[in-house]
Amino acid sequence: MTDFLYFWNHFAFVILMVSGLFIIITSQNYIKKIVGLAIFQTSVFVFFVSLAKIIDGTAPILNSVNNVYSNPLPHVLILTAIVVGVATSALGLAIVLQIYKNYGSVEENEIKKEELKENS
């Protein structure tokens, strides 16, 4: 049972990642795709932070009480990655707004249909 608890984070990482991908591929709404992308990226954050944890450790802020600290390096990496993720979403949203302005829709299948019509 405890093994299962220990394993739960890794399992969640896989499930989150796959469901993010699943949302990106299957959903036709661009906003939802961006949300899917965010979920996909978040899975990695959870993975990294889980790697950093040490049992009985505390947050990596030096103190006199405890001498075991969780690993700070993944935290640093994830700080960067979070910001990068939000930047990507922001740019994506801006593009979606422009797409809406130009096409009058944010559903991928509708836009593709319109493109096909235009070409033929």
Binding site: L37, Q41, T88, G92, I95, V96, Q98, I99
Partner: peptide
């Protein structure tokens, strides 16, 4: 205007690749 679709496509696929 197709450039927007191309850019969005690149954004999503590129972000997946980077992740």
């Amino acid at each position: 205007r197709k450039a927007l679709l191309a850019a969005f496509n690149y954004l999503v696929i590129g972000a997946i690749g980077a992740t």
